[in-house]
Nucleic acid binder design. Structure first.
Lengths: 257, 257
DNA sequence: AGACTCGTTCCCCAGGCGGGAACAAATATA
DNA sequence: TATATTTGTTCCCGCCTGGGGAACGAGTCT
């Protein structure tokens, strides 16, 4: 489905794989039972049964009606994860207020596995609905968040990620190769912000600004909107200013922690 | 640690147990490595290593510095879970607005594994900090949410849950046995709301109202505050009215879905 | 009442997995 | 710089676990 950058081999444990296949399945479709899961995954019912028992005992999944769904425990896990990321509340506050102020979609992303993961998202008044969702992943080369984060990663990490990239053209404007990408990264470093000009989704443009702590990049904050409202002038002008100052606020608040 | 009501035996898979022990550990303490985890869980380093590889491949955990933390993927899982619960947005909206209006802590809980799980929580202006956290579990006998939900569950389920209960006195007022509990449930059904009079935490009182869909209980909404502000009169008066009307709004909006 | 589908249980046996130990790499100590 | 210590990684072995097949029991639908 998506490129797998850090593919290190090593031994991997089958039962755990199966368990997570079940979890993945239940994430997509709740309320299914043993038989259905067994069919879907190509395992015997008895195998799936044992797994469901284990997951149930662990309170990872819950019986509901006839079928299972993921347990609320995940909400707890998620909030722990947010805490672990550090400074989440600061990021949240700033993202929310920028969304409120501009009425557009504002997102904060960090790098994980050579992709951008959305840590927080807020939509203002006239929000365009986008498919992105907190916790999901997007390629780095086709999003302003991704390119901006990439631009400020240590050179060897950039190489590593770029080497594992598979450039899939999502629109006519998508970056299609390394040379184009490196050039873009250079531009971003020069101007201090990154642009996505309908490179990921047709009709949508974004600007992102990096959030750094000293010299290490923590993530990036972006603002997204329809090309009609997001003209080239505004992108490089006030919108870029918005994200840069928001990034700045986060940096200042996060500096001494 | 906590009572395990639905303890069905059945076969359980060891590797999966280990995997989740690791996840649990990383949830509590991020940034630890192979050796530390192996020590903590009493497994060999090689075993833990294989597991970490598996979890890393699955993007459940992420290398960070020297050590691992849980991945942002959990944020995505959590949002799926919320969607699966159904009507989360309605609940959220109502809880938020009640918290805003009253300035206190408002929570929504559902039953899971014979305990109350918090689905959403909002705190208003003068919020007392409580330990409860979205996704965490509390016993049903010592919380107003728990007792209120319990009161409206089908009789056989009440029996089942009550049978597995271990009454641990959390304060001087905690319910300590089944007869007391059943009496309380009866009172709740009569008056249409449930009270927690410093039964779970000293100095804190709550009122909860049930949220039902037809005759099945979906959960309950509660408001929590310090006993100083939450006098007996207010609890049974305006505060009870608040939660009941909020519950009503949720019921109305959720009815046709 | 019969034919279906569902979840559960039992048993078997192959190979997966946990463990120990050796290895490698990085950091600390002197 | 050499030595000692701690880290993560790899290898291999052998037990036993976990996956599969099939039988069973309980609902559910014709």
């Amino acid at each position: 489905m998506s490129p797998q950058p850090n593919k290190r081999p090593g031994r991997t444990i089958r039962s755990v794989q199966i368990a997570f296949n079940i979890i993945d399945l239940l994430q997509e479709e709740a309320g299914i039972g043993v038989t259905r899961i067994a069919d879907e995954l190509g395992h015997s019912k008895s195998t799936v049964h044992s797994h469901l028992r284990t997951l149930e005992e662990r309170r990872v999944i819950v019986r509901e009606g006839d079928g299972y769904r993921l347990g609320l425990r995940f909400l707890d896990v998620a909030s722990h994860v947010r805490d672990q990321i550090g400074n989440f509340d600061i990021v949240q506050k700033e993202v929310d207020s920028l969304a409120e102020e501009t009425g557009e979609i504002v997102q904060f992303g960090v790098e994980e596995y050579g992709m951008v993961s959305y840590l927080h998202k807020a939509q203002g008044e006239h929000a365009v609905e986008t498919l992105s969702r907190v916790g999901t992943q997007q390629p780095m080369y086709s999003t302003s968040l991704g390119k901006t984060i990439l631009a400020y990663l240590p050179p060897e990490r950039i190489e590593e990620i770029a080497a594992a990239m598979e450039y899939e053209p999502k629109t006519a404007n998508t970056i299609t190769g390394p040379e184009e990408l490196f050039e873009e990264l250079e531009t971003i470093r020069e101007q201090g912000y990154g642009i996505d000009d309908e490179e990921n989704i047709n009709g949508l443009r974004c600007v992102s600004a990096p959030v750094k702590n000293d010299e290490t990049i923590l993530g990036a904050i972006s603002i997204t909107g329809p090309s009609s409202r997001f003209t080239e002038d505004r992108l490089h002008g006030e919108l870029a200013d918005y994200v840069r100052s928001a990034a700045n606020v986060i940096e200042l608040n996060t500096k001494f922690s």
